[in-house]
Design a binder for these strands. Sequence first.
DNA 1: CGCGGAGTTGAACGCATTCAAGTCTTGTGG
DNA 2: CCACAAGACTTGAATGCGTTCAACTCCGCG
Lengths: 256, 256
Amino acid sequence: MELHLAYPGLFDQGAAAQLSAAMGTPRQLNPRQRILRANAAGAGALYVQSGFAARYRLDRSGRRQFIGILIPGDFAGLSAFALGRLDHDIDSISSVRLQPIGHDRLVAMKTTAPELLCRMWQLTLLDSAISRYWIFRIGRLPGLARIANFFSEMLVRQYVRGLCGTDRFELPLTQSDLGEACGMTPVHANRMIGELRAEGICNFVDGAVEVGDFAALFRMGQYSWDYLYLPEQVSADLRQRLSPAAARGIALQELR
Amino acid sequence: MELHLAYPGLFDQGAAAQLSAAMGTPRQLNPRQRILRANAAGAGALYVQSGFAARYRLDRSGRRQFIGILIPGDFAGLSAFALGRLDHDIDSISSVRLQPIGHDRLVAMKTTAPELLCRMWQLTLLDSAISRYWIFRIGRLPGLARIANFFSEMLVRQYVRGLCGTDRFELPLTQSDLGEACGMTPVHANRMIGELRAEGICNFVDGAVEVGDFAALFRMGQYSWDYLYLPEQVSADLRQRLSPAAARGIALQELR
DNA sequence: CGCGGAGTTGAACGCATTCAAGTCTTGTGG
DNA sequence: CCACAAGACTTGAATGCGTTCAACTCCGCG
């Protein structure tokens, strides 16, 4: 089974094989299904083999705020394993194929493969870094930049796992979902998308984003991927694709 | 050395003693000093013995977005230990007393005290849960509720460590800081504070919050502390203080 | 054929920002 | 001791970004 080159820099060949061996039989979920419920007791982790899912919290009147997106190669429920329960809900967005790693298998790793468990810790820390970046995005950036920044993250996270190129990537969200992810109304999300389209930066249509101008997208969103802890080689590749000029030695500070 | 009953439910007497023993000599920092710099190589962790600090990221024009507040009993730099570097800056807000736990001490724990390291993992997951809740707060709540919700978190996190009662707590932020924490301008933060004061809910003055109406504060902010993973006993105590009626068997659904 | 969900667009409203001017406190130097 | 500068807080007024409400199109599906 393929691990999507999961988590560049974190898992080597051997670790991926070990992980793969620990996984149970996959289960398939339809779009818009509950994957994990808040407060549910932790019971192992779920590896997202394909499809997209969303972590979210509800406000008093029942409206959702996305607090994270799971893409192929992510784990759901790792924190519930370590903390005993989950503090938020997770729903599938598109059809999703999940592979469980039983609670006992994870416990067993403590003795049989401690450094694998250490990698799991790092995964949860990566999630944490991503959450912090979401705070920055929603707290500091105006609407247009917020969408561009969000798209940028979705692009990079998929790109570094070999799930897409730099000119197009899957994003099976509705415009309402997009609003819930970026802390704005669906109507406003729609308008911001329209603006990005009008400027030729990208086009969000049919559950995917067609990227017209890679560099402009990142610039518009003030995007920086430092928080994703990519290995230098991967980061350099991205920098080079973002700006071939920089690869020829011309420094572009603002792109870091 | 006192550990502030740190992290209710996570550390028992023995673990606290072990932790305490691993700590180096404290260092004192003035307000508004850099504690850790983004991209700095990880070098152990810093226990916050007293004082307040803020994690933040800068936007392109140099304005800060707070992505977390460190209160006494928190650790700074734990994630940098596990991931190798830090993705954000940390500054002191007030005077801060920090006690370092060297990188080597942490590494040594892998073999000498693995379950202590496991608790450290849980701490980082708690941080992660708090970050997610910040996304919810900033993404979904209108200005007034945002402030109330933020105050509520600061109250609960300090209360459960025995750092305050329910009628007043330290919060040595300026109104500008408050704005940076809640994703709004200082001017607007000022107005929201004024409204809370006018309604008799709380008064933010001289680096502390005087709580006029505990329950109203939480209600106004739609606050729920489920994400803090408090032990049931602690949570029950809070519930009881929040609403003595509930303790007499009258269910109040909206309070979680 | 009609329904419902997703997307689009217009117009009015309002929350939050911006700009600006002012007070108050604190610390520093004359 | 007072003068002054700087930072924190406060307040008013104008502006504008984003929400809300509403109507309409498009499309897939029963």
